[in-house]
Design a protein around this nucleic acid. Structure first.
Lengths: 261, 261
DNA sequence: CTTGCCCACTCGTCTATACGAGTATGCGTC
DNA sequence: GACGCATACTCGTATAGACGAGTGGGCAAG
């Protein structure tokens, strides 16, 4: 068991860098160098207080910085730990290609099982709503829309929360309005109903989560969300669906392939 | 001038919600409702201490929460302000299409001026390096690479930091190794040299910035970064360039168009 | 052996105080 | 008017202490 001094060094009293930043720097460097690895417990607040000879608030300030940076997570009653990097799910840009739809099973389920994870979908809700301005504009200002909400989990961990919006005149009294729309999902149903899909537009933003998003996605502090809004167009140029998705950013990498022409 | 009570309400002493969270909730709600607008100054710490009858650390805790959420920014000596939403730059997925390259001017400059902003590029650096493992794998394990680093600014604000890597055997002693590679950029030069571009792969992640990234992009707290890695392939299937880009997430929307086939 | 309790250790919350440092304003001097 | 300074206000940093609450291990009683 190496001494704390050899792992963390000591403060530089001549430095004009704030003490809590120096402590954060020492911990960050130790993590970067692998002295603490994913899931390892960092020294307790008391140990850091003793080692650096500062007050507890100063140590907490330093640890709080690391949490904001997404490097550490604290667990009440246990300690502060190096944040584990969860397995990452890769979303390929061809994930909605027609050939995948023909298989029948939901893309999320197939792909997760192939990756050796246990997929779940919960909090499914289907209801009719008045569209928000953003959704309304994308769908051509329908008076009402059908909203399909669901949350996706991998191995019990929530990773994504998505809502699909469809113009009500298009979706009412169809399988799309059922909780389970059947094999191939709502895109397969849309095509059966004569809305042959032409292309999708996707808009990607990243930001910090709202408190509500922190709850539904069980996000650690220092983890942003990726906000993806996809609009599906049929061959007539009509927007037939908007899917609004919020993903835990530490669980995803999005992949796109672009032609050079 | 409405009283603070009418804007923020009062604490609920019977609630088991932590006091600093209640204060943060009150401020967040007031911001959401438009009682404080973008750029507005929030009540000073002292005013909040007096209004809620708590100690200053409790108020600072609440304000710190809002900053982590990206809702507020503090300015030393001035106050805490509702974080202004900067104008957002939209990156379209066809931004590297050949037709845009033919114009001659740099895409960033053209587009920024069209949007009425003042574009700048700085800290240009061109050097030969040993590639990191990730870059090396993408480029087919060259021994050395040419690295082109630059930072992009809009109206004086840094928004993006990018590094292009090219296999050295391909780029050495060409215009690509010059600080200014000429009209159309390095992609135009690559095509002139016989590497006709076929497609690009882009990988997108979002995360909190490192301290170094906070400095170079002058990021407010609570602003994540979008990390985009683009690999360019020529028609022979060879990876000819990797561009590693870190963007201030509050300054960008990425847009992609996907075919449905 | 099992159950249940106590205790030690962890982080969470809150108070009170002090001083430092950046900003803006007004006022007096030049 | 221009300049410089004092001052009041802002947030930043740090100390010291207190109590609460979640976790886990040890120990004693059953």
């Amino acid at each position: 068991m190496p001494s704390l001094t050899s792992v963390l060094g000591v403060l530089d009293p001549t430095s004009d860098r704030a003490v809590f930043r120096q402590i954060a720097d020492a911990l960050r460097e130790a993590i970067d160098k692998g002295r603490f690895r994913e899931g390892d417990k960092l020294p307790s607040e008391t140990e850091l207080v003793d080692h650096f000879g500062v007050s507890r608030m100063t140590v907490r300030n330093a640890l709080s910085l690391l949490q904001q940076e997404g490097l550490a997570v604290s667990e009440h009653g246990k300690g502060v730990f190096v944040r584990p990097r969860p397995p990452v799910r890769r979303l390929a840009s061809d994930r909605f290609a027609r050939r995948h739809r023909d298989q029948g099973k939901a893309a999320f389920t197939v792909e997760a099982e192939a990756a050796g994870s246990r997929p779940e979908v919960d909090s499914l809700e289907v209801k009719e709503e008045r569209p928000s301005p953003g959704i309304s504009a994308r769908l051509g200002s329908p008076r009402k829309v059908l909203a399909r909400r669901r949350r996706y989990l991998l191995d019990g961990r929530p990773v994504e929360f998505a809502t699909s919006y469809l113009p009500l005149d298009l979706a009412r009294n169809t399988p799309i309005a059922q909780p389970n729309p059947g094999p191939g999902g709502i895109y397969a149903r849309l095509e059966e109903m004569g809305h042959r899909l032409d292309h999708f537009d996707e808009e990607i933003r990243a930001r910090m989560p709202s408190p509500a998003e922190v709850r539904t996605l069980q996000l650690a502090s220092g983890v942003p969300v990726i906000h993806l809004v996809r609009t599906a167009y049929d061959t007539e140029g009509r927007a037939v669906e908007v899917c609004d998705t919020v993903m835990a950013a530490d669980a995803y990498v999005l992949a796109y392939q672009l032609p050079a022409n």
